[in-house]
Amino acid sequence: MSDITVIILTYNEEIHIRRCLENVKKFASKVYIVDCFSSDRTVEIAKEFGAEVVEHEWPGNQAEQFNWALENLSFSTKWVLRLDADEYLQPELVKELNEKLPSLPEEVSGIIFNRRHIFMGKWMKRGIYPVKLLRVFRYGKGMCEQRLMDEHIQLTEGCAVEFEHDFCDHNLNDLSWFCHKHVNYAIREAVDLLDIELDLTGTAEMDENKNISRQAQAKRMKKHKYVRQPLFWRSFAYFCYRYFLKGACLDGKVGFIWTFLQGWWYRTLVDAKVYEIKKECGNNKEKIKRFLKDKYNIIL
């Protein structure tokens, strides 16, 4: 076993949790399930696998929940891995982790993995793969940055190294669930874009100073450029970039569905939310913040 504790945030994840825990038991010394009072069999299954379950009310976003776990749970391992219930490590990555983790130098505080998306049972090899995410860090030397969307693990000291192999984001729910999830994401993504454009929170310029993965930093900077493009045109251009230039068109019908829904439909919905907010509030920052609080219970 590796000297690593896994933290998994859950709410009604019985469809995924067994697969996830069967995977992490191959390398983890300790597993915490931080659950939000699930009404299905998530907790029951987790306890079957010997995971320690801690119930904690949802604070409003993933970052706050994860950081609460870091601050309030007991850790006896040197390393921490953040994993979602619908994610798992490929066998090659499990082997790489077990072999390399004990010999990493002290100045290395984080490990970056490649994430592959499995959609409708198919690996989306083109379009956005590989997504590089910092998911493992030395306990006490990392935390989750506070964002409504696209939050990453941020190192507080030390540097990160990249591992060669992949972990998978493989959700087993149907297309209706997938679309509904993105409808819920859209308002938070719209607020994130408005924050970059108008600096609603006074933190827009801090992104470039954060110790996150190089790819995540580059993606964040591209988002700053994306914000300056015209509404609705930018979502179409993003779809074309992923589908044609990045080769998602070679992934068949499933590749089209994936890229259309996530790369055009969702991005258009986000722009529609931005348009709705600006139509009501213009560029008045205080008015936007009041509108978000009253309409969506989002407090900036």
Rank of each mutant, 00 (worst) to 15 (best):
M1L: 12
I4P: 01
T5L: 08
L9C: 03
T10N: 08
Y11A: 06
I17V: 12
C20T: 05
L21W: 06
V24M: 14
K25E: 06
Y32S: 03
D40M: 01
R41N: 15
V43M: 06
I45T: 01
A46D: 07
E48Y: 13
G50Q: 13
V54S: 05
V54I: 15
H56G: 01
E57T: 13
Q62L: 15
A63T: 14
F66W: 07
N72I: 07
S74R: 14
F75A: 02
D86S: 11
K95M: 09
N98S: 09
E99M: 07
P102W: 06
L104I: 14
P105A: 08
E107C: 10
G110I: 04
I111N: 02
H117F: 13
I118K: 01
M120W: 04
M120A: 10
K122E: 14
W123Q: 09
K132M: 11
K132Y: 07
L133I: 13
L133F: 06
F137A: 00
F137P: 00
R138F: 03
R138A: 04
G140F: 03
K141G: 06
M149D: 05
H152Y: 14
T156P: 05
C159H: 13
F163G: 02
H165Y: 14
D166P: 10
N171L: 12
N171Y: 10
L172M: 08
N173Y: 12
W177A: 10
F178M: 14
H182T: 07
N184Y: 13
Y185C: 10
A186H: 01
I187W: 01
R188S: 13
E189N: 13
D192I: 06
D195N: 15
D195G: 06
I196G: 01
D199W: 09
D207T: 11
D207V: 10
D207R: 11
E208G: 13
I212R: 02
S213D: 07
R214H: 11
Q215A: 09
A218Q: 11
A218G: 06
K219N: 15
M221R: 14
K222W: 12
V227L: 09
L231S: 11
A237L: 08
F239Q: 00
Y241A: 03
G247H: 04
K253R: 14
V254W: 04
W258C: 02
T259A: 00
G263W: 00
Y266A: 05
V274N: 01
E276V: 05
K278S: 06
K279P: 06
N283Q: 14
K289W: 10
R290C: 09
